[in-house]
Amino acid sequence: MPELSKIEEISQGVVAGDRRSIARAITIIENDAPEAKTLISKIYSHTGKAHIIGLTGPSGSGKSTLIEKIVREYRRRGKSVGVVAVDPTSPFTGGAFLGDRIRMQELSTDEGVFIRSMATRNYPGGIAKATRDAVKILDAAGKDIVIVETVGAGQSEVEIIKVAETIVVIHAPGLGDDIQAIKAGLMEIADIFVVNKADRENAEKAITDIQAMLQLNTKEKAWKPPVLKTVALTGEGVPQLIEKLEEHRTFLKREKIGEKSLLRAETELVEAIKEKAVNSIIEELKREGKFQETLQKIMAKEIDPSSAAEKLLHSKFKKAK
């Protein structure tokens, strides 16, 4: 376990943009080591500068290839970029195969790019528990752009909204049930739609399908999600995508807080309170022996878990009063 001085050294390294420190910091966070909290508290004041972009979409839509092209385009414009690519952990073995960076390997030796693969470690929602903090590390390290690529197969990629400011949903023609491949939830959260592989037949149909879906959504919004075309293989349409990303960034700044970033901060605070509160209540109940006692009763079918929880909390609540 790294000692405190070590954490100090790493956090200083992160802020100075040292690659080795960034890598180690992310590991500490991923491992949910006790030092993780200290680390985040030390770098937190340096965050908030990067444009955080979430990219999601069904597998086969060409996400990784497109990201590679997006990164290149940002590099051409003199921006530094961090990428966090998330892949699922096997629920059976706990292992994971992280292969997203294969398509970006040529970028790995570029000093202005940092790519990190993460496994979900069974956190629901398609993003790793640590993703949010890994993004903070890259942000604090001075990356102008941080891109988060999430698992396309889960049912609730919508979790990405907790991490990213601008959300790009990628689709491609010929992915089975066409528009059905984009889940309703994703339609709601997308700031930009991209139809990749736009050189294929049916690309137009995919675009009109998305537009039709968007029109169904009657809620009045200040930002109207555009539908863009790209061909990731050749990079066609990528500069236009970058323009839109920048536009959205400006829009968010203009809107000041931006409903989204407020929502994100709120969610994060709520989650943190929940986690801490729940942990401390449970620990206390265990200390008092009530937890095990109730557990026995549940096992003996004397009481159901939900009523038991109510009862325990009720007694706590009264005591607190």
């Binding site: 290839t65 590679e68 195969f97 292969g99 294969i102 398509r103 293989l233 050749t234």
Partner: peptide, 10 residues
């Protein structure tokens, strides 16, 4: 033509 990047399936 561009260069091919393999699709990894294990």
């Amino acid at each position: 033509y561009g260069e091919y990047k393999e699709l990894i399936v294990i």
